Simulated scan of single mutants.
Amino acid sequence: MKPLLLAAIAGAMIAPAVSAQDMAEDTGFSGIYIGGAGGYDVQGNDVGSSILFDRNLDGRFGDTVTTATGANAFGTPAGGFCNGSTRAATSPTSAVPAGCRNDDDGWAYYGRVGADYQRGKIVVGIVGEFGKSEITDSVTAFSTTPASYVMTRSIDWEASARGRIGFTPNNSTLFYGTFGPGYARIDREFYTTNTANGFAASGKRNQFGITGGGGVEQKLGRNFSIGLEYMFHQYKDDDFRVRSGNSGTTPASNPFLLGNTSGTDFRRSDDKFRWHSMRATAAFRF
Rank of each mutant, 00 (worst) to 15 (best):
F190L: 05
G212R: 12
R119I: 11
M13W: 06
Y183V: 13
A196S: 07
G84C: 10
F130D: 07
C100A: 08
A17F: 12
A196Q: 13
Q118E: 01
K236Y: 08
G80V: 00
I32L: 02
F224P: 11
G227F: 04
S50W: 10
F224C: 03
T168W: 04
A89C: 07
T281K: 00
S277Q: 15
V139Y: 12
I135G: 03
S247E: 04
S202G: 13
T69P: 11
A88E: 09
Y109A: 14
T193Y: 04
Q21A: 03
E158D: 15
P16F: 01
G106S: 08
A88G: 06
I226M: 11
T192Y: 03
I122A: 09
G36I: 06
F167N: 09
N197W: 10
D54N: 10
L228C: 06
K219D: 00
G212D: 11
L52P: 09
R55W: 11
D237M: 11
T152E: 05
Y110D: 04
R285Q: 08
P92Q: 14
G44V: 05
I122S: 06
G263W: 07
R162Y: 12
A24C: 01
E25V: 00
I122T: 00
T173K: 14
S49Q: 03
A88C: 03
I9D: 03
F74I: 02
D156A: 14
S154N: 01
G259Y: 04
D238R: 08
D103R: 11
G79D: 07
A115Q: 00
G11C: 07
A159K: 13
A201I: 05
G39R: 02
I135Q: 04
V242E: 08
H233Q: 11
P97N: 15
A95M: 14
H233M: 09
